[in-house]
Nucleic acid binder design. Structure first.
Lengths: 150, 150
DNA sequence: TGTAATAGTACCAATCTGGTACTATTTATC
DNA sequence: GATAAATAGTACCAGATTGGTACTATTACA
């Protein structure tokens, strides 16, 4: 379905939760799980990844927890997906050029690359804050702007 | 990975093959499989789906085969993905509103919907012919045009 | 009537995914 | 220090999905 994995989906929900309070306080995995109503072990797993990938800062020990590394409006959805799922690629030939045995015959690769770029430019143009607030209507603001935003 | 399934990937490769000859001749599954170097049973399976979904016309019996239902520049990549994978939805709440048990707490749904639209508007703006030829550079032609194309 | 094609299912093995469990390490607090 | 509360790092498992095959039925040309 060209579907994100649930893990990534949850990651975005969790980060949106972190972004909601502007003061960037730390929250423990337990707290985040309760607030977002997601299973705690899953939340732990995801927050670990997000910390490793540098989207969250972590603090170990008692009274430890996680906090956003920067404000929500400076974290893009594309960035989060990248953190959870590795390099963004809609087809194998984008992720690992030369490894697809059809590549010599196929001839679509460079154009796939463009499609890939367009899709992920769209995802990079959305920020966490866009998700939590109501962000500008794409019709009203014009599609060009949304895609060209960085 | 926000990755298309191989089936969809193959479907696009196959349709691109059909689009290459402008006169819209019919080709059998066997022929398409040989030309595109994809496994025949897989090709058969995919062509059946594409015919059922109305992107190919089929002709049974000896000398039968498949042909594009309309010219390549009028078939969008989004349409193909839809045909192969059903309604396009990056998250569960887009595909089946109300069924996700987190929906009441989550509050991201309407914004996911926007993201979904943006991604698939991008996919709808690409046509089969864009894939086979070299299509206009998105920078040069301006992103707005690509996204607003239908 | 024979042959070459699509239509429709049903099936299977292998991989991926969602989710859990366990141990090690770190750190605030008493 | 001892303790408790937190993250870090793995390893694991069952079920769903995916890539791929096989088989039978139907259609239509020659």
């Amino acid at each position: 379905m060209i579907r994100m994995s649930k893990e990534t989906d949850y990651a975005i929900v969790l980060l949106a939760y972190f972004a909601k309070d502007q003061d960037g306080l730390k929250h423990s995995a337990r707290e985040a799980a309760m607030e977002s109503q997601l299973p705690l072990p899953m939340v732990r797993k995801i927050l670990k990844v997000l910390a490793r990938e540098g989207l969250l800062v972590s603090h170990r020990g008692a009274k430890g927890g996680y906090g956003l590394v920067r404000r929500g409006e400076r974290i893009s959805i594309g960035e989060i997906i990248k953190a959870m799922e590795g390099p963004l690629a809609v087809t194998e030939c984008i992720e690992a050029p030369g490894e697809c045995r059809h590549e010599p015959v196929c001839g679509l690769r460079t154009n796939w690359q463009r499609i890939n770029e367009i899709v992920f430019e769209a995802l990079d143009s959305m920020t966490l804050s866009d998700l939590t607030g109501s962000f500008p209507d794409p019709i009203a603001s014009g599609p060009g702007e949304l895609v060209s935003l960085q």
